[in-house]
């Protein structure tokens, strides 16, 4: 088994996909770092040399002013209200949620890339794991060996798992290493609040507690990894079902982007919460943001994703072991 996985890893490395992905991340991170840097600089210029409390307070009053406008959408109002009470809570507990530093950048970066960017990167790796073997014809060679079919597929799946871990790790390392040049490498022990629960447009704070930033980041990366695994599994299933890599990519791309769009407009269509792509934003539950549809929680989203993932896994294995290869 180990040899099979080794073999698959070797194929992955041969294809140079992992390097491409690392290059993509290494290219994007400086871009975002620069954007973040500009934003901070801009804020400093506008507000003078002030401490963060004043800035945060300013933001709170700005939001309050926006809330008092009558032309604001209900959706957006709810979002603003929740963010407002959260900011107020941070302020009252004397915690700066955005003190600049490489760990903070890391955190903001993964929170923003969990629902689209990282799944896309995973998709690039996984999409042709199986389908390239069928379209290239090498699958016959692979299956003539005296190994059970499910073991072959499992070795591919494990290779996928390893490469997803590798991608998530390189996101962590690269975003920390590169942004640290600008923001400094400190800030791991900064306290952050988590455990907010959203009910309607109220923000419940009874479970709120402080965690150090390094734990917060580790938790968020755990969730990121989970999301990537689910997206990976679904892509893997499509890769088994379809011969054409382009079709796999097309379907995954469409559903991921549809998820991003849906999340912004499904609030009144409640059953949409059972789609996997609406549930990808797991980190929002940790940081306490408004959910796209009422009644969604971390447990709910993780279960929905798990169901999709397990279904995808089973379909992939059953089809692969029963299919006629010619």
């Amino acid at each position: 088994m180990i040899n099979l996985v080794r073999n698959e890893m070797l194929k992955l490395l041969r294809k140079k996909r992992l390097y491409v992905i690392i290059l993509i991340i290494a290219f994007l991170v400086p871009l975002f770092t620069y954007a973040q840097f500009k934003e901070i600089q801009d804020q400093r210029e506008k507000m003078g040399n002030q401490d963060w409390r004043t800035t945060l307070q300013q933001e709170i009053t700005d939001t309050q002013n926006r809330l008092s406008s009558s032309r604001i959408q209900d959706e957006w109002r709810k979002f603003l209200k929740i963010r407002l009470s959260q900011q107020q809570y941070y302020l009252e507990n004397d915690i700066d949620p955005r003190a600049p530093g490489a760990p903070t950048f890391m955190r903001i970066f993964v929170e923003n890339s969990i629902d689209l960017l990282l799944p896309l990167l995973v998709m690039v790796i996984v999409a042709d794991l199986v389908s390239s073997e069928s379209s290239g014809g090498t699958i016959k060679l692979l299956l003539t060996r005296p190994v059970k079919r499910w073991r072959i597929l499992l070795s591919k799946y494990l290779a996928m798992l390893l490469s997803i871990s590798f991608i998530v790790l390189s996101v962590a390392v690269l975003s920390y290493g590169i942004s640290g040049v600008v923001f400094g490498y400190g800030g791991w022990n900064m306290p952050l609040l988590t455990g907010f629960t959203v009910s309607g447009d109220e923000l419940l704070t009874e479970n709120v507690h402080i965690v150090p930033q390094w734990q917060y980041i580790l938790m968020e990366f755990g969730l990121v990894w989970y999301v990537c695994m689910i997206v990976g599994t679904l892509t893997f299933m499509l890769s088994v079902l379809l011969r054409s890599t382009a079709a796999v990519m097309g379907i995954m791309l469409a559903s991921l982007i549809a998820g991003a769009i849906l999340a912004n407009m499904v609030s009144s269509w409640e059953s949409a919460k059972y789609f996997f792509m609406v549930n990808l934003n797991l980190t929002n539950y940790v940081s306490g943001m408004a959910t796209p549809i009422e009644g969604m929680s971390l447990g709910f989203s993780m279960s929905v994703l798990a169901v999709w993932g397990i279904a995808g896994f089973i379909i992939a294995f059953v089809t692969f072991s029963k299919r006629d290869i010619y």
């Binding site: 507990n93 798992l161 390893l162 490469s163 871990s165 590798f166 998530v168 790790l169 988590t194 455990g195 009874e206 479970n207 709120v208 507690h209 402080i210 965690v211 734990q215 580790l218 938790m219 968020e220 990366f221 755990g222 969730l223 990121v224 990894w225 989970y226 539950y285 940790v286 971390l298 447990g299």
Partner: peptide, 29 residues
């Protein structure tokens, strides 16, 4: 990659433990 997998699994487990257990010391705040 294997090390990373272990690390992320640990993070995921920690999230579950942290987010779903309720008796937290809020007073510390």
């Amino acid at each position: 990659s294997i090390a990373a997998t272990v690390l992320w699994l640990f993070g995921l487990g920690w999230t579950l433990q942290d987010q779903f257990s309720t008796n937290k010391k809020v007073s510390q705040l």
